[in-house]
Design a protein around this nucleic acid. Structure first.
Lengths: 127, 127
DNA sequence: GTGCCTGCAAACATTTTGCAAAAAC
DNA sequence: GTTTTTGCAAAATGTTTGCAGGCAC
């Protein structure tokens, strides 16, 4: 007899997770994994880049942070409704709260929408 | 005296460029560089992956194709106004012509918008 | 013929993974 | 004590690049 005993593995709260999430929530920039590594290492000097990647992936899957895909992924601890502006001159990413289209999240012909993202591209004020 | 003699290098039309662009214009999927390589190699057996990447970058910069960033970049030969739906179950990308928000492209507080993209995430009809 | 473009292979950057030791519970 | 997580290093992946020969013009 095969019992479908699901070994529900319990997730643990570690200082690494707390500090990475805390850093992302406070960061106003949209740091890459490498930047998160450099910053978090100030508090946890022995942390490794592999751990950074593992925790970022974990937080993303739980929906606590956002991944902004690009040639180098960047991360956003602000999960409230807003969009992003990429400056094509300096490469910086800015938050956009105005003009963020609030779309009715629902059904499309192709499937059911769970979330969406809007990205703007252009030239920022400083460039 | 420094003369700003700009050596305007003239771009050449090669069979590689024509065939890659032709393939992307006809493709209904959103192929990765690897897929483009496999498909284009049917017509040009000696083409290399490096050339694929170089030409994709070139076409993107000229605005003839679109790059859809992700862990693996994918390319779209259709540059008319539409958005994309990512199925989080099967990984497929679908074109979305309905519900694509037509935003007034103009100025934001942070800078001037040149273009924008909308990405939907969810579960497709088949999954 | 000149100069841009390609094929090839090596280099590069980012991200993932296997494993033993450490930490959380 | 058990099980998850970490640090470390090595591997895997996707993409870029240098160079000599080839091709477009």
């Amino acid at each position: 007899m095969i019992t479908n005993k699901k070994k529900s593995k319990k997730e643990r709260i570690t200082s690494q997770k707390k500090i990475i999430l805390g850093y992302l929530k406070s960061a106003k920039t949209h740091p890459s994994a490498e930047i998160v590594f450099k910053e978090v290492r100030k508090k946890l000097p022995r942390i490794s880049l592999g751990t950074i990647y593992r925790i970022l992936k974990n937080l993303k899957e739980k929906g606590e942070i956002l991944e902004i895909p690009s040639d180098i992924s960047r991360y956003d601890g602000n999960i409230s409704a807003h969009s992003h502006f990429f400056c094509q001159s300096c490469g910086k990413i800015f938050d956009v709260f105005d003009k963020a289209p609030i779309l009715k999240v629902g059904k499309l012909k192709v499937g059911k929408i769970k979330s969406y993202q809007v990205y703007f591209y252009g030239k920022c004020k400083n460039c």
